[in-house]
């Protein structure tokens, strides 16, 4: 699984906002180009980003294995034709180049995930998006991070309890609706208790945030982000 990994690389020291900007710039230009030359250039940028963030490539590819299945499927689907010549290489090639750029976008985003703790992302969200929407988004992300393992444990408990009562031999619909209903009632019970607890602690629209500051190294990265985004129009 792809998660934050504490380290002291250049990518770890950058401000999350400049890293987000680079990803968006990279995605914009990758979505605009599929020529072999552009893909080569994008591959070089990707390799550079992975190197800077010290991302292990094989582990990352394995983490994205579900996405890779779809990306591998696309050229096959595009190439298959009914009737002669049965497999159209030109179509498959075009689709293959298109899915390769998606792989590059995935790898660049892996560098962000590996080098940015969730609390830094949260601060970036709340400082970038003004007002109440930013507050709700930031706090929501923090709550999801906190409650994800709790709700996973809930679902696991429900599944184990069903299995102990031979519930795993029932039909798929029965299992899915039982798991969905129990999962949702438990999650909402937790939500109601959480809401009460937040109100008891003066849940407010204007709390104090952790400090974020651009360092000297952030400025060249921001410039790179803008350049990447502009190459989408080249």
């Amino acid at each position: 699984m792809l998660t934050y990994n504490p380290d002291d690389t250049l990518a770890h020291r950058l401000d999350p906002r400049s890293k987000l900007a680079v990803q968006l710039g990279f995605a914009a230009t990758a979505l605009a180009h599929t020529s072999v030359r552009a893909l080569l250039a994008l591959s070089v940028v990707t390799a550079f980003v992975l190197l800077i963030a010290r991302v292990p490539p094989l582990e990352t590819l394995y983490a994205y294995r579900f996405a890779l299945v779809f990306l591998a499927l696309a050229p096959l689907l595009a190439g298959l034709t009914l009737g002669s010549p049965w497999f159209d290489l030109a179509d498959a090639g075009a689709s293959g180049r298109a899915s390769y750029r998606v792989l590059l976008i995935l790898l660049v985003s892996a560098a962000y995930v590996r080098s940015t703790p969730v609390r830094a992302s949260r601060a970036a969200i709340q400082r970038t998006i003004p007002g109440k929407p930013g507050q709700l988004l930031g706090i929501g992300v923090a709550l999801i991070f906190r409650f994800l393992p709790v709700l996973q444990a809930d679902l696991r408990t429900i599944r184990d309890a069903m299995a102990a009562r031979l519930g795993d031999e029932r039909g798929v619909l029965d299992r899915a609706s039982t798991l969905g209903l129990l999962g949702l009632t438990r999650a909402f019970d937790r939500a109601d208790r959480l809401a009460l607890a937040m109100q008891a602690r003066c849940f407010a629209w204007n709390p104090t945030l952790p400090a974020l500051a651009f360092s000297r190294t952030d400025y060249p990265v921001l410039v790179a982000a803008v350049v990447l985004a502009l190459t989408a129009f080249v």
Binding site: L2, Q23, A67, I125, L137, V141
Partner: peptide, 28 residues
């Protein structure tokens, strides 16, 4: 939207425990 944002900033919530901005622009 909270779900998508959480995934984008690196919490493994997308199918296959994936995370990051990549899946938002990926095949799915």
């Amino acid at each position: 939207l909270l779900y998508l944002t959480a995934g984008a900033v690196g919490i493994p919530v997308f199918s296959g425990f994936e995370a990051g901005i990549g899946p938002l622009f990926g095949a799915t």
